[in-house]
Design a protein around this nucleic acid. Sequence first.
DNA 1: AGAAATAGTACGAATCCCTGACTACCCGCT
DNA 2: AGCGGGTAGTCAGGGATTCGTACTATTTCT
Lengths: 171, 171
Amino acid sequence: MTQTPDITTTQPGSQASVSALLFSAYRAMESRIFGALSQAGYGDVTPAQGRVFRVIRPDGSRLTEIAQAARVTKQTAGFLVDQLVRAGYVVRVPDPADARARLIKIAPKGSAVIPIGAAVVAGVEAEWTALLGKERMQMLREALQVLWEATDTPSALRRHQEAPVDEVVVA
Amino acid sequence: MTQTPDITTTQPGSQASVSALLFSAYRAMESRIFGALSQAGYGDVTPAQGRVFRVIRPDGSRLTEIAQAARVTKQTAGFLVDQLVRAGYVVRVPDPADARARLIKIAPKGSAVIPIGAAVVAGVEAEWTALLGKERMQMLREALQVLWEATDTPSALRRHQEAPVDEVVVA
DNA sequence: AGAAATAGTACGAATCCCTGACTACCCGCT
DNA sequence: AGCGGGTAGTCAGGGATTCGTACTATTTCT
């Protein structure tokens, strides 16, 4: 409760790298989301579980799809899906199209969580809009979207992963 | 090497939440940085170590300061600093002002890493500027800076942490 | 001097995520 | 038919990150 002097962080106004700023904003959003979820009685979901849950398509997804979309290995995805199954947020059903595969589908409990998370996100985005103004918020979203398409799209990833990485320091 | 169909991620053009976009951009930057560091012979630093290293002030920082600035517990900070000490990036020296405390200072090897990381960041930011245009990139930086000051500043944190969190879902 | 706060450490545990190795199944080709 | 390469998913094991609780040493306030 008692406070230490406020030298903690870099001085306001100084320039932290975009990298650190992105991390900070993401972390702020994440902690708001999971704080609210915890308050709402869904304290058993973790951020990692959330990141795989988020990429499950409405009609169900295969584990391999989930792993690729969430950028983790199949094992990690399987581990996290196991937890989500045990906690009742998703179910595994056989994939009628392929006996090797199973579809992971969102269970009722999972559906119940979605609007709660969406509401928090909407709330935080509203706060941010109040801080930035509608136009800058819109531009922020667009800019991030452009970067996402350039860096986090299957073709973009292939581009980076296969490059021998010779002249990374282009400066 | 062989490729799975490209259904992986959300369709380009659809709107992922700002949260996911922030995460994606941060992750892209981070993997570039640590990829390059690894190539440059500094493969023993990890992202977590980087996040504490980043907040060490030029004249040295106390562990508690580092912990607060990096938003981790003292134990975590101490653990990561231990690793950085073992790897030779920082040193611990007694704090002349307080016999309980020690100052963590950047060692020569640590100083050597800084320009490498900075170059990568500059390179990635240049790529992003090429994608977005100078103006949008500048606006992105400003917007993130505003959000940072509002959410990741000591006073801002106190504001959020102490709120009883009743009406989180303001939507 | 004595009480309260602060700097840091020790230990134990949970979470997250990866590599390597394996089984079960699908599909195209002979 | 049926074989072989590729895909879906699991098992086993390990490393990294982070936290909570509990403790010692030192400073600071009264």
